[in-house]
Design a binder for these strands. Structure first.
Lengths: 200, 200
DNA sequence: TGTAAAGTTGCAGGGAGTGCAACTATGGCA
DNA sequence: TGCCATAGTTGCACTCCCTGCAACTTTACA
């Protein structure tokens, strides 16, 4: 064993990457729905059957990095000092992801384009985000030191994901030119301060 | 024309209802995935082809009433006085739905059971909720009277849906015995007041 | 070099969902 | 009442996603 970096593992990563690249190119050219798994497999030089050993569904090729993003969020969240509020900790975690996103602006926009035009991919992305909520809520509950009343972990987690999504929406709608971490900070700050502002 | 209540329309509603009932019974008995459209069609006394004239996907049978819920939200939201804050208006709208939900506790819990065990249905429900966000955000933007800075409609809408979801989660996790509107009110109030509470 | 484990492939098949064309029922009208 | 246009139903053929299985190939390691 101990094959985390042997030839086998390296090849596997390469193949996954090759499939992803081939697929996204085809999606761009022909559209997601019009592209079949058979075509992707041919372009990536594997058999159609093998495709499903790498990705559970066609949708998942587009959303390959969601799992990594989640580990990023949880890592940063775990690293936050216990003195700061849960909300501040959440903001820091999601800003870290926002900073990562900015480094891959084009890939991100490509994904959004596909999501906007393909119901199933969009739905699946929301499902993965719901998984983030679960993980984050658990962490928040654990972060609490059991003295005093517990924070509404579920509400905090759901709100954080909602803020992140609204921020991304805002960023994309404005042409993806502004600073994403700044927008995320703004959204989190508003939510943290309270949404119930009197009219005017 | 003018056939909104003729024999034709009545029959259509009956058939839709018959399909829904047959499907949910089968889902309860055999599970969602193990039930085929063919079986549902047989139980509802229609052809498999006809099933897809009533429901776009198998998933949609479970989520049939989402569209009605949305119209309920938008109706109540439109009816809110312009003096109250956007957040108060949102709270009122979602509490109306919460009150409706409570009337159909068992049907609602059945749906949650299916969603919890079936990824695709859960994902689809989130997608429909995202549709709520769109509709609500549009309404909020329109509600604003163009004087002063516009409210962050997207953020408000996303937060409201998140609060609703967290409230439902809380309600179900606690055995669905508490008052759902009260829980919704509590969640909205917390969010409205601001989530960024200092530790202790 | 031999052997166990991991990875790949082809095959057969189930089930969702769609387009099309034929058929049937309904609603309105002369 | 009988006729016609329209709406709804059905069967058929088909595409595609995805899965289990068994045979085969490659890699790791002693």
């Amino acid at each position: 064993m101990a094959t985390d970096d042997g030839l086998r593992a390296r090849k596997k990563r390469q193949t996954a990457r090759r499939i992803e690249d081939a697929a996204l190119d085809l999606f761009d050219r022909d559209g997601f729905e019009a592209t079949t798994v058979e075509e992707i497999a041919a372009a990536a030089d594997i058999s159609p059957r093998t495709f499903f050993h790498y990705f559970a569904t066609k949708d998942d090729v587009v959303l390959a990095d969601y799992a990594e993003r989640l580990t990023r969020v949880t890592e940063v969240l775990r690293g936050q000092p216990r003195q700061i509020s849960s909300w501040q900790a959440l903001m820091a975690s999601f800003q870290a992801v926002a900073a990562d996103y900015e480094q891959e602006r084009d890939a991100l926009l490509r994904r959004f384009r596909i999501m906007a035009s393909t119901e199933s991919v969009f739905a699946r992305s929301l499902q993965l985000q719901a998984g983030w909520e679960d993980a984050v809520a658990d962490l928040l509950a654990a972060r609490h030191d059991n003295s005093g009343e517990p924070p509404p972990a579920r509400l905090l987690a759901a709100s954080a994901v909602a803020a992140m999504r609204a921020a991304l929406h805002h960023w994309v709608a404005a042409g993806a030119r502004a600073s994403l971490p700044a927008i995320v900070q703004d959204h989190f700050t508003r939510l943290g301060a309270g949404l119930d502002r009197p009219r005017r």
